[in-house]
Design a protein around this nucleic acid. Structure first.
Lengths: 210, 210
DNA sequence: TTTCAGATACGTCTTTTAGCGTAGTGAGAG
DNA sequence: CTCTCACTACGCTAAAAGACGTATCTGAAA
């Protein structure tokens, strides 16, 4: 298996190279100190796995990964970063990275990450994974639509679709005045000051699917 | 460490119990064949980790986990399911589960999951993790906000917060008329007919976080 | 049976938004 | 040095929404 290390810290590259060279799975190791050098040598090296730093002078890890995956979708990119902030990991995942390791990981974790991505799986440091999961669950929390009547939910749904009160009235065979009243009650019950907040409420409470 | 197994398959419980009993980390093992029995015995047993099936007669795994975490937020619930569909894992994550194992996992993975959740981390079977990641990246794809200028994005964000044009003008030190114009341009560019559709657009394109 | 809540409907008034103009300024591109 | 584009700003008018009211009908609960 051919590995490419992209990182602007000479010492870090050397240490990692030493550790990897001792692993029998590894055939050859290439390195580059930034994304541009990496992309220049990509055609030549054809690596299986890339260990990619994110913060680098020149093309950063996210841009570099995007370019790499666009050309060779099968290359497994694993992000290697000092920090695990949300923008980093979502950026790298969107760019097509299959794993994300923090630099305080043990070498054992690096090996585990590499074997997982080679098997077509993903691997993330526990801290990153916790972040991803928090992100996933924080969206869905508050669901207490019990205060709205079914008619009001129906009206709210149509508001979210972008219909005017008149159109909703036509849809539901009501008079516009009635829809006005429903709308007013929805604003009251959802403690919204206007349409925008009402729509946000509806989406938050899963009364309208985006 | 005390473990509680909640699963409606007698044989599965027995096998798992046997494997766990051989692990020195485990002090005691409780079991229940559905969520209701589990919740009845929760106060008595005070488990550290719960291995929870999702499909069960009576209270299912998601409802049971919600009830459990509400009462004892520190209990680590690990979902154990035959299938890894999106509703299952998002449901369990929202309910407060810290891990998700497919039933074709090796016992080694169960041990790994238990040690991870006890350390405050999450653990997911590779298949689940891939699903979560796919989920994470698919949301961001529909993000072509390039058509909106940064000022317009700013205005849209404030609209979503429920501010009136006058309030936005005050916030951003603009005249109300200017905000009017921005709003009009946002409606045009996002092909929205009114505020509601504009807010939906903003949320869909991650210009506003719910 | 009475009571109550929800759905229905209407009136009036003010505020806000929408849609149509026009136009000056400053930064960056050609 | 122009040209373009984003941002700024203003006027006018119509439509929609918001905030008050009131009132009838129906079905479920007390």
């Amino acid at each position: 298996m051919k590995i490419f290390i992209v990182d602007d810290h000479q010492l870090f590259r050397e240490g990692l190279k030493f550790l990897l060279s001792d692993w029998d799975l590894v055939e050859s190791i290439y390195e580059a100190e930034n994304g541009d050098y990496f992309l220049e040598n990509l055609d030549l090296c054809q690596p299986d796995v890339v260990l990619m730093d994110i913060e680098m002078p020149g093309a950063n890890g996210i841009e570099t990964t995007t370019a790499c995956i666009e050309k060779y979708p099968d290359i497994k990119v694993i992000a290697l970063s000092m920090y695990g902030n949300e923008n980093y990991y979502t950026g790298m995942i969107d760019a097509g990275a299959k794993g994300f390791l923090l630099k305080n990981s043990r070498f054992e974790d690096v090996q585990r990450a590499i074997t997982e991505v080679l098997n077509g799986n993903n691997y993330f440091s526990p801290e990153i994974l916790n972040g991803i999961v928090r992100n996933l669950s924080k969206k869905k929390n508050s669901s207490k639509n019990s205060e709205l009547t079914s008619r009001e939910i129906e009206v709210l749904y149509n508001i979210c679709k972008g219909l005017s009160n008149q159109e909703i009235a036509n849809n539901l065979n009501l008079s516009k005045r009635t829809v006005d009243k429903h709308r007013e009650n929805i604003l009251l019950k959802t403690q919204s000051g206007n349409t925008a907040q009402m729509v946000v409420y509806a989406i938050k409470n899963k009364l309208f699917e985006i």
